[in-house]
Design a protein around this nucleic acid. Structure first.
Lengths: 155, 155
DNA sequence: TCGATAGGGGACTAAAATGGTCCTCAATAG
DNA sequence: CTATTGAGGACCATTTTAGTCCCCTATCGA
């Protein structure tokens, strides 16, 4: 299904929630409540986001989480990467490719390109986009159409 | 990581192998050998591809597998779908969305759009592309860049 | 200085998905 | 009739994922 893990999903929701009120610090409890998810799980997710450098945390009574940088410069790719590790469709599409089938496979190169295209796409959608109430309809969808035509025409 | 399952990877490799010699029928054993993967696993993969309607099979001594339609009209999306089920990034991005968090989530719409964009991308890359020895360098990659600009400019 | 409020780190478990193997049955060609 | 080749499904081992919990540390304010 090429699906995101559930935690990644949570991460996106939580990040979006924070992004909507960037000024204040958000406690894990508060977020869990706002988002209707069990506190320990949300907490775990938040920790991962901190470790990835997307959130900053502050302990103590007035503590909580806030964005480490503006929502416009946090990408979906960053969020996915924070929870699942770097985006890579196939074994061999990360740098230290150690797939011993490269010879017989004959598909590696092209997969890597597809992978790259997806990464680029995910890089182009920011947290600011996600957090927007109004859906980002055309901006993403329309230009993609031209890709379809372009690459189809090539063959 | 947003990774394909290993079986999907195998499927792509095997399909590409078949696509390179579309005239003949390919026995599972032959394919397993060509691709350097254990026979039972390859066999399983082939069965799945048949059930998804991407391959046609024929039993008996001169039997084997061949493409159900030309390589140009089989997409990577089809292949992924055959093994992992329909491409959908989030729980709620398939039709029968039954996520009870839609209200508090506030991100669903946009994820669905990202999902759609990826699906569109995967639809635009065909088996013929994959099977090509020479990588499809620019066709896919360049137009995507314009997506980046387009959607960034929008926010 | 103390205590209440928050997060940090990591261990641990249960459940599910994945990968891989195997066995028996059915179809086809010669 | 027999050798070949796929269909279908059971089965198991391993890994991944999700979720919980506990104990420690930092910060604020009384």
């Amino acid at each position: 299904m090429l699906k995101l893990s559930r935690l990644t999903d949570y991460a996106a929701v939580v990040m979006a929630q924070i992004a909507r009120y960037p000024e204040q610090a958000h406690a894990a409890t508060e977020l869990a409540d706002a988002v209707q998810l069990p506190h320990p799980t949300v907490s775990k997710t938040l920790k991962m986001l901190v470790r990835a450098g997307l959130l900053e945390s502050r302990r103590g009574s007035l503590g909580g989480y806030r964005l480490a940088r503006p929502a416009t410069s946090i990408t979906t790719s960053d969020i996915i990467g924070a929870i699942e590790g770097p985006v890579a469709m196939t074994e061999c599409s990360h740098a230290d490719g150690d797939c011993d089938l490269v010879d017989t496979c004959g598909v590696a190169d092209n997969w890597q390109r597809v992978s790259l295209a997806i990464r680029t796409l995910l890089d182009s959608v920011t947290l600011a986009h996600l957090a927007q109430e109004s859906p980002l309809k055309l901006p993403v969808q329309l230009p993609i159409q031209s890709v379809t035509l372009a690459s189809r025409a090539e063959v």
